[in-house]
Amino acid sequence: MSFRHLPSRALIASVLATVMVSFALRGQDLREADAQAMSQEAYEALQRGNAALAVREYRQLLEAHPEMVAARANLATALVSLGRFDEAIAQYQMALKEEPDNSSLRFNLALACFRKGDYLQAAQRFGTIHNGEPNNVRIATLLANCELHLRQVAQAIALLKPLEKSHPNNLDLEWILGMALIRAAHPREGLERVQKVADRGYKAEAYELAAVVYMGLTDFDKARSDAEAAIRIDPHASNAYLTLAMLDGYSGDENGAAEEYEKALKANPQNLQARTQLGIIFYNQRKLDDARQQFNEALALNPRSLLTLYELARVERAQEHLGTAVKDLESCVHEDPQWLPPHIELAALYYILKRPQEGAKEKAIVQRLMAEKQQHGPEPSVTGSLPPSP
Rank of each mutant, 00 (worst) to 15 (best):
Q293K: 15
L312K: 00
R304T: 13
R317N: 11
E297Y: 06
L288Q: 06
H321D: 13
E316G: 07
E297N: 05
L307G: 12
D289F: 13
E316D: 11
A298I: 00
D289Y: 13
S305K: 12
L309Y: 04
D290F: 09
Y310R: 05
N296G: 00
V315F: 08
L299W: 00
L301M: 06
H321Y: 04
R317Q: 14
F295I: 02
V315S: 06
L312Y: 04
Q319G: 07
L288A: 14
A298M: 01
L322R: 12
D290G: 09
D289Q: 13
N302D: 14
L306M: 15
L306R: 08
S305F: 07
A313T: 08
A298C: 08
H321Q: 15
A300F: 02
E311Y: 14
E316W: 11
D289R: 15
E297D: 13
H321C: 03
L322E: 11
D290K: 15
E311Q: 15
L301T: 04
A318V: 10
L299F: 00
E320C: 08
L309I: 06
L288P: 13
A300R: 03
L288R: 08
H321R: 12
L301W: 01
Q319F: 03
R292W: 03
R292C: 10
V315T: 10
Y310N: 15
L312N: 03
A318S: 15
D289C: 02
Q294W: 11
Y310L: 11
N296K: 01
A291L: 01
L309N: 09
L307N: 14
E320H: 12
T308H: 06
R314I: 12
D290W: 11
D289N: 15
E297I: 00
F295M: 10
H321W: 07
L288E: 07
A291H: 03
R304N: 13
L306W: 14
A313K: 05
L306F: 11
R317V: 04
F295P: 06
L306K: 06
A318L: 13
A298R: 00
Y310G: 10
H321I: 04
A313C: 05
V315R: 04
A300T: 03
L288H: 01
L312V: 03
V315N: 07
E311K: 12
